[in-house]
Write a protein that binds this DNA or RNA. Sequence first.
DNA 1: CGCCAGATTGACTGACCAGTCAATCCAGAC
DNA 2: GTCTGGATTGACTGGTCAGTCAATCTGGCG
Lengths: 210, 210
Amino acid sequence: MAQGGAAMEKRRVILDAAVRVFARQGFHTCRVSDIADEAGVAYGLVYHYFSSKDQILDTLFLERWHVLLDVIREIDAREIPAREKLHEIAAFIVDSYRHDPDLMKVIIVEVTRAANTFGRTHLADIREAYDLIAEVVRAAQETGEFRTAVTPEFAALAFYGAIEQVLTGWIFDLLPRGEAEYEQATAFVVETICGGLDAAVGAEARRPAL
Amino acid sequence: MAQGGAAMEKRRVILDAAVRVFARQGFHTCRVSDIADEAGVAYGLVYHYFSSKDQILDTLFLERWHVLLDVIREIDAREIPAREKLHEIAAFIVDSYRHDPDLMKVIIVEVTRAANTFGRTHLADIREAYDLIAEVVRAAQETGEFRTAVTPEFAALAFYGAIEQVLTGWIFDLLPRGEAEYEQATAFVVETICGGLDAAVGAEARRPAL
DNA sequence: CGCCAGATTGACTGACCAGTCAATCCAGAC
DNA sequence: GTCTGGATTGACTGGTCAGTCAATCTGGCG
């Protein structure tokens, strides 16, 4: 029943169970015993592999977030238009949700959107993602692909915020889920941020009155 | 003593204290005694005015959120371009943060971004805000002011998500705060969502006359 | 004054739960 | 076969805290 990697496999089992429990009940309202039960493992074993309940969430967040950061760096290095880079980044995040909705829910709800608790702890990592996206925008502004009406930092926040809000829409059941919806969402976020809502023709009629 | 006089004042004192404590420590990690201490009031008095810790947060969220919804409805009713409507809505949310950062922090961190706990409870109210913004976009698409490349629902999510992300930037100390920054943030969010990042042909015409 | 009702107090309780630990299991080494 | 060390177990502890409640205060009123 047990082979060389049995120990690490159990660790994985606990992590995967924790994802399900955190997604279902939330980090603060679940008990460590819930995780142990979900994993089909004794309570104490959780503390054999992790030093605290917090550390389980930290582990889940970090192992996924670093993948995201690496992917963004890799995409940024490609020789493609900035708009396409943003599309690839959006697609990766949406794919992450498609592939493991529970994990993305936990990361977003319990970490990136939780300013008081884990958000504080992982501030530097979260910021790194904004900075990388801002760098994509800045480079595109230098080549003239993007206009300079907005600072790269704001553009990055708006872009990331729009994606996260869409994921939140799925998490909250405010948006329908499905293959078509995932594709559409990716395209729409990029289209909104890059193309804007304004109609190109008749622009003079929309001059602000204030 | 007039019913609603000093009694209601104490209730307010407790609510205001709760805002400060929730903002500082977070809803889950603070104690009811912290709120009582902050308010300069005995522990038991909190339960004279509120039936539970949860109810305090519910009250704080609802009284502010309903103001937001009313303001959006009022703005939508005005006879101004959609782009200006979005600007007014963004400005109101940013002003809410400027006027009471702690309250907005609590509302965003503990309610609108907390899918598992209070977000669930107030789902209908939160959704109402998206729906109202989507309606602004839909109407503008009908008159041709906005193009129809993106559905109103997605545009609303992207717009609201971008604003909330900027507020989160302030909450996390990722963005500098100040009068100039507040004005700029409002303009940039609207510019990003309406104008887009692309330096497309004819972009000059699409840029607003500021 | 004496009475009432609502405001106010803070000690107390009952439940909950993260983390500990001593005991037990088990697989491979020799 | 037995030794060893990590894997595994789950009962237990210690502390925390939401919510209760009986006592006390206060101010209006007849």
